[in-house]
Simulated scan of single mutants.
Amino acid sequence: MNQFSPEKIVEAQKASLDTLVGLTSKVFDGFERLLELNLQTMRSTLAETREGMKRALSVKDPQELIALQIELLQPVAEKSLSYRHHFLEIAASTRTEFDKVAEAHYEANKRGVQSLVESVGNAGPAGSEAVFAAVQTAINATTTLYETVQSTTKQAVQVAENSFDTAANAVAKVVRHRTAQISRAAKA
């Protein structure tokens, strides 16, 4: 059967459509999870703000107001870290799904190109082996380059996430320390 038969073209189009629908579904799933996270965050923030305002309106002296402000500020860093953690979890799971699909397509395309080169090479005229060997070498070099770039990108993303985690935790620690200092100074 011909490498480019109508049946194979239709089959490839169906597979591409299935992949597109699957990826679109994954995007909507991630978007839905992110929307739910944001709605949940907004609801809790509004409730906490309302409660804080009620408490602030019942304050009788400046010392009590300072203590209330400190109390309300203390959990902000932890909540920000929690939000970031959930956000990154959603993004990572969506990215993982895309990575799986991209890897599967890459492997399928790589096999298809190699199969095409081999079939053309086998049907080629005598003496054309060197040309097809050069093409095969170029394909292998491209494959190695792609895999190296993919590996490097994954490592860079991991380093960036770790650096951000470290910085966020350091900021949270500083905020906790600073609010504790202000609290002690307000009580003195």
Rank of each mutant, 00 (worst) to 15 (best):
A160Q: 15
P6Y: 06
V171S: 15
L37R: 00
M53H: 14
V131C: 03
G22D: 11
N2T: 14
M1S: 06
L35H: 08
K60F: 06
T143N: 13
Q40S: 13
L68M: 10
F28M: 13
Q181Y: 04
N140W: 03
R43W: 03
A104Y: 04
N2P: 15
P75N: 02
Q74M: 13
A67P: 01
S128E: 10
D18Y: 03
E97K: 04
Q40G: 10
A77V: 00
S16V: 06
A168W: 00
T148K: 13
A134K: 14
Y146G: 07
S128L: 02
P6L: 06
G52Y: 03
I9Y: 06
I90H: 04
T142E: 09
V157W: 09
L116N: 15
G30T: 00
V21K: 00
V135F: 03
E32R: 06
R178A: 14
A91R: 14
Q158G: 01
Q181M: 08
L34F: 13
A138G: 09
A130L: 09
M1D: 03
S151K: 10
G112K: 11
S115N: 15
V120A: 14
I9C: 03
E103P: 04
Q181C: 06
G22L: 06
G52C: 00
A156S: 10
Y106M: 05
R184F: 06
V175P: 01
Q69H: 07
A102L: 13
R111G: 10
Q181N: 12
K79F: 02
R111K: 13
E48G: 11
E107C: 05
T49V: 10
K60D: 12
L73N: 07
S93Q: 15
Y146C: 11
R84H: 11
G22P: 10
A123V: 08
A188P: 07
E32L: 06
I139M: 04
K187R: 10
R55S: 14
A186K: 01
T179H: 05
M42G: 02
S163D: 14
L35D: 11
S128P: 03
L88C: 04
A77T: 00
H177V: 08
L65I: 07
A172H: 02
V171R: 15
Q114T: 02
R184M: 08
K60M: 09
Q13T: 07
N38K: 06
Q136M: 11
H177T: 11
F28K: 04
T153L: 08
T142F: 07
N38M: 08
P75G: 02
S82K: 08
H85G: 05
V135G: 00
A126R: 07
H85V: 05
G124F: 05
V131D: 15
L73K: 05
T144D: 11
S80Y: 09
T179N: 07
N169E: 13
V117Y: 03
L57D: 13
